[in-house]
């Protein structure tokens, strides 16, 4: 890969004595869609949270578009960044959460507009135009003034996608975006993600939706116990895994 937009090199992370990520290496090309699969506790979510430095890593290095996430390199030493610099770095990475995490005291439009207004310093009118356009894009033009408690889970997650897109990120992280949804609402969220992939957005998707991985992803990555145990073209990888651990996982979910 000549110019990966996201690069993970030797990433390790422990919570106390427990090793959650164990020397993870992964390069993601511009516009690539990578689905990360694996049983719960495999370190998938932690990996995503490390990419935008919601968790700090113990060793290794994560680079987004050439920038080392969370650190400034000076010679052979990495200095951890201050909060303001971290916040600026996170602009390059959008994130969608399993539990949506919409701001509960704000309407759908306010949720989308909050960061463009407050962080990017956009004028109110411009920000609201952008917010309305994004909500129209995810099919919620008529729910701009609804509070999250008045929306279905699928609608909440679509607002959350619009909120992340409002910052024009270079990479989008999806942390089990459909796991908290009623089965009949999963489709509407996956449709939005499919559209986004078609438009060339770089996406890292932690998911249990094997069908989505097979159909949309450019690459499937299977994790187990903090390691990438297998990766490759999704259809081939999912149909014919080479390692025992990947086979064991797929046997349980397929």
């Amino acid at each position: 890969m000549s110019d990966p937009i996201l690069r993970l090199q030797g990433v390790c992370k422990s919570f106390g004595a427990q090793r959650v990520l164990n020397d993870v290496n992964l390069d993601v090309a511009r516009g690539e869609v990578v689905c990360i699969l694996g049983r719960s506790g495999a370190g998938k979510s932690t990996l995503l949270r490390c990419i935008n430095h919601l968790e700090s890593i113990d060793s290794g290095r994560i680079t987004v578009d050439g920038q080392i996430m969370g650190y400034r390199a000076r010679g052979h030493v990495l200095h951890e960044l201050g909060e303001a610099a971290l916040a600026r770095q996170r602009l390059a990475v959008g994130m969608v959460f399993q539990q949506f995490n919409l701001f509960a005291h704000m309407t759908a439009l306010e949720n989308v507009v909050e960061a463009p207004r407050g962080v990017l310093r956009m004028a109110r009118g411009d920000a609201e135009d952008l917010g309305r356009a994004l909500l129209r894009r995810v099919g919620l033009a008529d729910r701009c003034d609804a509070y999250p408690s008045e929306l279905s889970g699928g609608q909440c997650q679509r607002v959350a996608i619009a909120r992340a897109l409002a910052m024009k990120p270079k990479v989008m992280l999806f942390d089990e975006p459909t796991s908290a949804l009623d089965p009949e609402l999963v489709g509407e969220v996956l449709d939005q993600m499919r559209d986004l992939a078609k438009e060339g957005m770089t996406m890292i998707v932690v998911t249990h939706e094997i069908g989505f991985a097979r159909e949309v992803a450019d690459r499937a990555v299977i994790m187990d116990e903090g390691l990438i145990v297998e990766e490759g073209e999704p259809r081939a990888t999912l149909a014919n895994p080479q390692t025992d651990r990947a086979r064991a996982f797929l046997a349980r979910v397929l």
Binding site: E83, A84, N101, L102, F103, A115, A160, R163, A164
Partner: peptide, 18 residues
């Protein structure tokens, strides 16, 4: 206030103070 609210705010580039 749920921890996820803070994470969502940080993820869109807000500083802890904001």
């Amino acid at each position: 206030v749920h921890r996820g609210q803070v994470e969502a705010a940080l993820a869109v580039g807000m500083t802890p103070r904001r």
